[in-house]
Structures are given as structure tokens and as C-alpha cells.
């Protein structure tokens, strides 16, 4: 008889523990240090600089082709920033991590990432592929063809690092919505890299791979 009570007690305790656990850990939500969370955070930072460069170049040139490309990049990436923001909200996670940027990629990047200085300087990019604050200032001061060429070069490097980040997410995550977004980023940014390289050539600039 006592054994039955004991078993019943254990069963009730287990059930309660499961309920509490389920309430604390949202089912299916990636944890704080997951590649999904890292991707959603770092890609927002990365994207927001692409938006900024696009807005700058639209103010600095009248060239229709460059202005249209910049319009496309700015609105596409701003929309994706919103999606990634909403994922983190839904997962119950803060928008920034406590670790270093790109730590979630576990070494899956080929762009120079070695020995990032502890203290940022105007010459150090905040993340691989991102423009330095000095380069942004130069873009803001350039105009016409000079601004277009600077923009194209910065955005090609930016997209190349973006493609690598999205590829890292694809190799580390099973989450269907993360995979869908990363897949579409790889395709879209790769095709924009090709377009921007043609635009550089058309402006008399040799292609220069970073």
C-alpha cells in the first residue's frame, strides 16, 4: 500500500516537473547560445550597415542603376532585419548576445577574423566584411562615380561575408525558417555580387576580389 502512495507521489512530482520545464523552456525555441540565435543577432548588425551604405549612396549619386540597386538592398535587408528581430522575440531571447560576435559560427568563416582587437578603432571593422567607420565617412563625402565605385567595393565585401555567415547557419542549423532565410540570402547576395562586379567593370574598374 505504501509503495502505491510512493509511486503515485513520484508520478505527480514528475508531471509537475515536466509542466514547469515546458513552461520555462519554450518548446522548439533555440537556446541563447545556439547558432540560430547567433545568426539572428549578428546578421541584424551586418544587414543594418548594408542599409546604411545604401541610403548614403542614394544621397551621393544620381546614377539610376546604382540608386535602384541600393533601394533594393536597403528595403530587402531592412525587412529581413525585422524578421530576425521577431524570431528572437518569439524565442524569448535578448537581441544581443553576451559573447563575442561570430562565436556561434565555430570557425566557419574564411574572411580574416584572426585576433580581433579588444578595443575597436576607426580602422577596425565591427565584423568581418563590414566597412570601417572611416570607410563610411569617406563614402559620405564622395559623390558621383567615386561614390558609386566606393559603394560597390564595400558592398561586394559586405555581401561576401554575409554569404559566408548564411552558409555557416545552413551547416549548423536544422531550424526550417532559419534555413529558408539563409538559403535565400546566399542566392540573392551571390547574384548581387555578380551584378556589382559587372557594374564595377562598366565603370572602368577592374574586378578586385577581397
Amino acid at each position: 500500500m505504501r509503495r502505491i502512495y510512493l509511486l503515485a507521489g513520484v508520478a505527480v512530482a514528475l508531471l509537475a516537473a515536466t509542466v514547469v520545464w515546458g513552461a520555462l523552456m519554450r518548446p522548439g525555441a533555440p537556446p541563447d547560445t545556439s547558432p540560430e540565435a547567433g545568426f539572428a543577432r549578428d546578421m541584424q548588425v551586418h544587414h543594418s550597415q548594408a542599409v546604411r551604405m545604401s541610403m548614403i549612396v542614394r544621397d551621393r549619386t544620381r546614377d539610376e542603376e546604382t540608386r535602384r540597386l541600393a533601394y533594393d538592398i536597403a528595403l530587402t535587408q531592412q525587412q529581413q532585419i525585422g524578421q530576425m528581430y521577431a524570431w528572437l522575440e518569439t524565442w524569448g531571447l535578448p537581441q544581443t548576445s553576451s559573447g563575442r560576435p561570430m562565436a556561434w559560427m565555430k570557425g566557419r568563416h574564411h574572411v580574416e577574423m584572426t585576433a580581433k582587437p579588444e578595443q575597436p578603432t576607426p580602422e577596425s571593422p565591427p565584423m568581418p566584411g563590414m566597412a570601417t567607420s572611416r570607410q563610411l565617412k569617406e563614402l559620405e563625402q564622395a559623390s558621383g562615380r567615386d561614390a558609386e565605385v566606393r559603394f560597390l567595393r564595400l558592398m561586394i565585401a559586405h555581401h561576401q561575408a554575409g554569404v559566408q555567415m548564411a552558409e555557416a547557419a545552413l551547416s549548423l542549423s536544422d531550424d526550417p525558417q532559419v534555413r529558408r532565410m539563409a538559403t535565400s540570402m546566399v542566392a540573392a547576395q551571390q547574384s548581387e555580387i555578380d551584378l556589382m562586379e559587372r557594374m564595377l567593370v562598366a565603370r572602368g574598374e577592374a574586378e578586385r576580389t577581397q
Binding site: 559573447g99 560576435p101 578595443q119 565591427p126
Partner: peptide, 13 residues
């Protein structure tokens, strides 16, 4: 003050 830069750690905003 420079120690704050370390706490910022690549975050924007």
C-alpha cells in the same frame, strides 16, 4: 572609460 568599449563587444545601438 575605455573599459566600456570592451563591454560593448561588437554590439550596435
Amino acid at each position: 572609460v575605455e573599459k566600456v568599449l570592451t563591454a560593448m563587444a561588437g554590439r550596435d545601438y
